[in-house]
Amino acid sequence: MTRIRPASTNVHGRAGDDRAARIADSIGAVFAHRPQAYRAYIEAEQALQASGTLSPRLVELVRLRIAFHNQCRTCMATRRAPDVVSEDLVCSLERPYEAPDLSEEERAALRFADLFAADHLSIDDAEYDKLRAFFSEAELVELGMRCAFFVGFGRLTATWDVVEDLPSSFSQQDFTAPWGHQEVVEFAPFVE
C-alpha cells in the first residue's frame, strides 16, 4: 500500500481494468490531496509535450536514466514512448557512453541527466558548452526543465511507494534498473 493514503479513487476516470490506468489513478489519488497543484503539474507537463522540440526518443531516454538514479520503480516500469524506444535501446542505458545505438546528442543529454540527478553542482560552464554542440539555448532550458520534473517528481513518487499495479519484478524493494525486465507498462499519464 502506498505510504500516503489516497484522497480519492479513479481520479482520471479511466477504465479500471487497464494496468496503466490503475497506475495513473494510484498516483493521481495521492496527488488529489492537492488537486489544484496536481492540475498545474499536469498542465506544465502537457505544455512541454506540446511545445517542446526535443525528440520523444531523447526525452524518454533521459526520463528512464533519471528513473534509475531516483530508484522510482513506478517510473522505471513505465514506457511513455515504446514506439520510438525499444527495450533493446532501454538496455543500452546500462552503459550509455559505450552504447553504439545512441547518438552523440543523446549521450550528451544523458551525461547531463546523470549529473543533474547525482551531482548537479558539477554542471558548470564547460558542461553547458559541451551541450551547445547539440542543443540551442531553448532546448537547454527544455532539457533542464524535463530533468527537474523527472528528478523531483520521480523522487517524490519513489517515496510514496506506489507499486501495487507494477509488474512483479519492479514491485520489490531491491535496487533495480529500467532495463532487463520481462514486463513493462505502456503509459501515457498526461494525455486527457
Rank of each mutant, 00 (worst) to 15 (best):
M1V: 14
I4Y: 01
P6V: 08
A7Q: 06
A7Y: 10
S8P: 01
S8M: 14
V11I: 14
V11K: 05
R14Y: 14
A15V: 13
R19H: 04
R22C: 12
R22N: 08
R22F: 04
I23M: 02
D25P: 00
S26R: 00
I27E: 04
G28Y: 02
F31R: 04
F31E: 02
A32M: 07
R34P: 00
P35W: 10
P35T: 12
P35N: 11
Y41V: 07
E43V: 10
E45I: 15
E45Y: 11
Q46P: 05
A47I: 09
A47M: 11
L48C: 06
L48R: 05
Q49R: 15
A50F: 03
S51P: 01
T53K: 08
P56L: 06
R57Q: 15
L58M: 07
L58Y: 01
V59C: 03
V59L: 06
E60N: 02
R63G: 10
A67Q: 00
F68S: 11
H69W: 10
H69D: 06
H69I: 07
N70T: 10
T74K: 00
T74D: 09
C75S: 05
M76A: 11
T78R: 00
T78D: 04
R79L: 12
A81M: 05
A81K: 01
P82T: 12
D83R: 01
D83V: 07
V85H: 03
V85P: 02
S86D: 07
S86Y: 08
E87L: 14
D88N: 10
L89Y: 02
L89M: 08
V90P: 01
E94K: 05
E98S: 13
A99C: 09
P100L: 13
L102G: 04
S103E: 06
E105W: 06
E105T: 15
A108E: 04
A109V: 05
A109T: 06
L110V: 07
F112A: 03
F112D: 01
A113N: 02
A113L: 11
A117V: 08
A117G: 00
A117L: 05
A118R: 15
S122C: 08
D125S: 11
A126I: 10
E127M: 07
Y128M: 14
K130A: 15
L131G: 00
R132V: 08
R132E: 15
F134R: 04
F134I: 05
F134A: 03
F134T: 07
F134D: 01
F135Q: 01
F135A: 02
S136V: 12
E137D: 08
A138C: 06
A138K: 03
E139K: 03
E142K: 05
A148H: 13
A148D: 09
F149R: 07
F153H: 10
F153E: 09
L156W: 08
D161L: 13
V162C: 03
S168K: 14
S169D: 11
S169M: 10
S169Y: 11
Q172H: 13
F175G: 06
T176D: 14
T176W: 05
T176P: 03
A177R: 05
A177C: 12
A177W: 08
G180F: 04
G180M: 08
H181A: 10
E183G: 00
V184C: 06
V185I: 12
V185A: 04
F187M: 03
P189I: 12
V191N: 11
V191S: 13
E192R: 09
E192D: 14
